[in-house]
Design a protein around this nucleic acid. Structure first.
Lengths: 322, 322
DNA sequence: ATGAAAGCGCTAACAA
DNA sequence: TTGTTAGCGCTTTCAT
C-alpha cells in the first residue's frame, strides 16, 4: 500500500495524499476526508523510512544505556519511551555492556537512523562525547559535558545528605565505594563526600573503582573490613547488597557493626533485609525530561541547557547509631 | 556523506560503491580497497533508511513488552538486543503499559519500520495476533498461537513442580493467584495446577485475575486468608511479594502460617525476606532464541516452529511444612 | 568488473 | 487548493 494506491482510489494526485498526512491544513476539508477514507479503506500507513529520505527526519530516537538489566535503567527507559511515543517517536534501545567502545560504535551506527539520541550515564570520555555530538544531536543523562545539553540527577546532594546522616549517627570513619572510573555519578559522589567529610570531621576512605554489581560490592568487603570504617556509602544499591551479604558472611551484622548506604533506590533496596538506606534518584523524571530536551534540540536545532533534578536520602534499616 | 561522495573520491561509479558495501564479491579486490579507503577517509556510513527503500529490508526489529519496569522483562530485552546486534540488527523497544490496544497500535505503527517483531507475553487475543501476523513476521514469547512461531517457557512444568513441592510439605488447600486474563502464562499455570491438584488430592482455590504487581498481590490478601488455604502459588514474584507483605500486616507469618511460591525468579525473589521459593524462567535464553527464530523467519520467509524451554522450581524460604 | 538508468515511497518547491 | 516535477540515498537490472 503506497501513497499512489490511495491517490488512485481517491482520484487525486499523490502530492495531495502526501499533504493530507503531513500538512493537513493545506488541503481542502472535503478532499481530505475523501483521501482519509480511501487510506483507511486500503489500510494505508505512511512509510516512515521513505518519508525520512526526503525530510531528513526519521521519527526515531536512540537510547543508549550501560546495562538494561541494571535495575536503575528500566524505569528510565520506560519513562523515556513513553514520552517519546506520546510525541510520535519510536525509540531504539541499546545496551553497551558497560563498554565504552561498544557505546561509541552504537552511537555511530545509529547516527543515520535517528534524529537524536539519549546517552544515559555514558562511559565514554568527554572528548569522544563532544566529537560524537557533531554527528547526532544528543542529550546526556548523568554526565556534564560543556556545550552539550543534559539532565543531571543531583547525586552530590544525595551523597551529602547520606554523609550527614551518618555523621549524625556518630560515625567518624566512613568508606565510599566508588563505581566505574568513567562514571560521572561516581565522581560526583566522591567529590561531594570529600567536601562533606571535611566539614563534619569525618575520615573518608575511598575504595574502588568497583564494578557496579553485587560482585563488585562483595569483592570490596575485605578491604572495607580491613579499613576499620563503621559506615559505607556504596556506588549503588547492587554494590551495597553485595557488600552486606559478604560482610555478614564474615560475621559482621548490618547495621549493628556496619552501616551501609546505597544509591538509586531500586526495588532491591526495599526488598532486601535489612532494607537499605539509599539515595533516591528521580529516574522517571529524568527519562521524560531528557526526551523533552532532546526533542527540543531536534526540532529547534538549538541545543537546550542543562537540567538538574533533586535527589533525596531515604532512611531505612541499614544504617544505625555507631 | 553519501555514496556519491565516495564514488567521486575513489573515481568509480556509485553503483560500484554500492556493490562494495552490499555485495563485495562482485567487485574487483583492488577497486574495493580503494573504495573502502575513500569511504573510511570520509567517514561514510551507508544510510540504512535509504537502503531499506529499495531492498525492503530495514535492518530493524521490534520488541514489544507489557512493562519494561517489570523485572521479568529487562534480562529478556537485554539478551534479545544483544543477539540482534550481533546479527547487525537494531531493535526498537516499546512498552504497552499492559494494554492490548496500545500493543496493537504499536505493532501497526512499527510494521513498516521493522523486518519483524517479537511480541513478549502479548495481551492481545489470538485472533488479533493472527491478523497482525499478516502485516509483519513475528515471533511470540510465552504465547501459543497455531501457525505462528514462538518461544514458550514451560511454566506448566514449573507450576506442577511447585504444587508437588507444596503437597510434599503437607499442604492440602492451595490457592493460585491468577494474572491478567489475557496472559497465556497465567492460563498455563492454572491448567497445570488444576491437573496436578487432582492427582495429589489437593483442593485448589482460584483467585483472580490480579494485576501483575505488588498491589495486585496485596489486594488479594483478604480473599486468600478468608479461603483458609495454607499455601499459595502466585502469578509472579511481585504478586507474591505484595501478598506476603499484606498478610504479614494481617498478623500471619510466612512461611509458618502460609507458604507462598512466586514465578519468574526475579531479583526480588532473592532479596526479599523470606527469600521466595519461585519458578525460574529462562528469560535470557528465550530472548536469544526468539531473535534467532525471528531472523530465520525474516531471512528465509519460512515461519519456524515453536520452541519450549524448561523451567524449574527454586526452593527458598517462603515455603514450609504445614 | 563496471557503468547507466530506473525506481523504492515520499516530500517539497514551483506552477497553475 | 491542487498538480507537476525533481529529488532524498541507495539498489538493481541491463548493457557494455
Amino acid at each position: 500500500m503506497t501513497i499512489r494506491d490511495v491517490a488512485r482510489a481517491s482520484g487525486v494526485h499523490v502530492s495531495t495524499v502526501s499533504r493530507t498526512f503531513s500538512a493537513a491544513h493545506l488541503v481542502n476539508a472535503q478532499t481530505r476526508s475523501r483521501v482519509l477514507a480511501a487510506a483507511d479503506e486500503l489500510g494505508y500507513r505512511p512509510n516512515r523510512a521513505a518519508r525520512a529520505l526526503s525530510t531528513r527526519r526519521t521519527g526515531n530516537l536512540g537510547l543508549i544505556v550501560a546495562d538494561i538489566a541494571n535495575p536503575f535503567f528500566p524505569p528510565l527507559i520506560k519513562a523515556a519511551q513513553s514520552q517519546a511515543r506520546a510525541r510520535d517517536y519510536h525509540v531504539f534501545v541499546a545496551d553497551t555492556d558497560e563498554q565504552a567502545r561498544v557505546e561509541e560504535e552504537l552511537v555511530r551506527s545509529m547516527a543515520k537512523q535517528v534524529d537524536g539520541a539519549l546517552l544515559v550515564a555514558p562511559r565514554l570520555s568527554n572528548r569522544v562525547i563532544a566529537e560524537l555530538g557533531r554527528d547526532v544531536p544528543f542529550v546526556l543523562v548523568n554526565r556534564r559535558v560543556s556545550g552539550l545539553p543534559g539532565v543531571l540527577m543531583d547525586v552530590a546532594a544525595g551523597a551529602r545528605q547520606a554523609l550527614e546522616h551518618l555523621a549524625g549517627l556518630g560515625h567518624r570513619e566512613v568508606a565510599v565505594l566508588t563505581g566505574p572510573r568513567a562514571s560521572w555519578t561516581s565522581q560526583e559522589m566522591v567529590r561531594a563526600a570529600e567536601a562533606c567529610a571535611g566539614e563534619h570531621g569525618l575520615r573518608l576512605h575511598r575504595i574502588g573503582p568497583n564494578p557496579p554489581t553485587e560482585e563488585g560490592g562483595a569483592a570490596s568487603a575485605d578491604e572495607v573490613v580491613a579499613s576499620g570504617v563503621s559506615a559505607v556509602l556504596a556506588y549503588n544499591d547492587m554494590v551495597a547488597v553485595g557488600l552486606v551479604q559478604r560482610v555478614e558472611r564474615l560475621g559482621l551484622t548490618v547495621p549493628a557493626d556496619l552501616s551501609v548506604v546505597g544509591v538509586d533506590n531500586t526495588h532491591a533496596a526495599r526488598y532486601f533485609r535489612p532494607a537499605l538506606t539509599t539515595v533516591d534518584m528521580p529516574v522517571a523524571a529524568a527519562g521524560r525530561g531528557a526526551i523533552d530536551l532532546l526533542l527540543q534540540a531536534v526540532t529547534t536545532g538549538e541545543p537546550p541547557g542543562t537540567v538538574s533534578l533533586d535527589t533525596r536520602l531515604v532512611v531505612r534499616d541499614s544504617t544505625a547509631r555507631r
